[in-house]
Design a protein around this nucleic acid. Sequence first.
DNA 1: CAGAATCCAGGCCGATACTG
DNA 2: CAGTATCGGCCTGGATTCTG
Lengths: 122, 122
Amino acid sequence: MKDVKTEKCPDTQACPVAITVDVIGGKWKAKILYNLISGPKRFNELGRLMPATTKRMLTLQLRELEQDGIVHREIYREIPPKVEYSLTSFGETLKPILYLMRDWGEMYEKEVLLKRKNSENV
Amino acid sequence: MKDVKTEKCPDTQACPVAITVDVIGGKWKAKILYNLISGPKRFNELGRLMPATTKRMLTLQLRELEQDGIVHREIYREIPPKVEYSLTSFGETLKPILYLMRDWGEMYEKEVLLKRKNSENV
DNA sequence: CAGAATCCAGGCCGATACTG
DNA sequence: CAGTATCGGCCTGGATTCTG
């Protein structure tokens, strides 16, 4: 399972936003994190909240978030198995960014989609 | 030149952060935008600020930002040619997010790199 | 200077099947 | 339920060359 490294910017030191992009800029990471703000979620629960993703991608992105100390993985030894993902206290420091991203999305989504419609005739 | 579409999330409507990720989540977009905050920049000037990118990628990402109405492209008819990129007023609405991303990066970069070091021995 | 066009390797990521 | 393993298509994106 060596795949999707998401190593994005060699010259991280030069650009202070680079490391942040590297941590939350994965294909699904911001969405995963946003969904975790409201509380811990089980694996399939996250999958249901993000129908467009696959179990594979969900796993890979969660593993990277775990390695970066953003997300905690709690395993309950039960039958059937139960695993809960939650934000670590370090992950919580990303909440302001996630909230701003949510607000911007809510505010300007229509405008973006409109601009894209208009530039379709190229 | 049909390439690098960066179309990321089909179920945009379900997740308010999705559209934001779609707009600034490209490989270089946040870095480009951050570099434009301090004022308009010429094409090669941006290239010099981000040595790890190629002209090709820079062009592609700038075009997408242009289509989304985030970046303005001003062409000066001179010899040699001069093109300046700047944030539109719409693009300026992203500044709070970019600032937070910069702040987070400056604050926690070392911590992230450390966590990655530690999880190397897997 | 500011790109566009073409080529093409490598890797992202979806699909599918399998496991404890 | 919560994953892992493997295969393979196709897209990403680097290198190079060419233009106004």
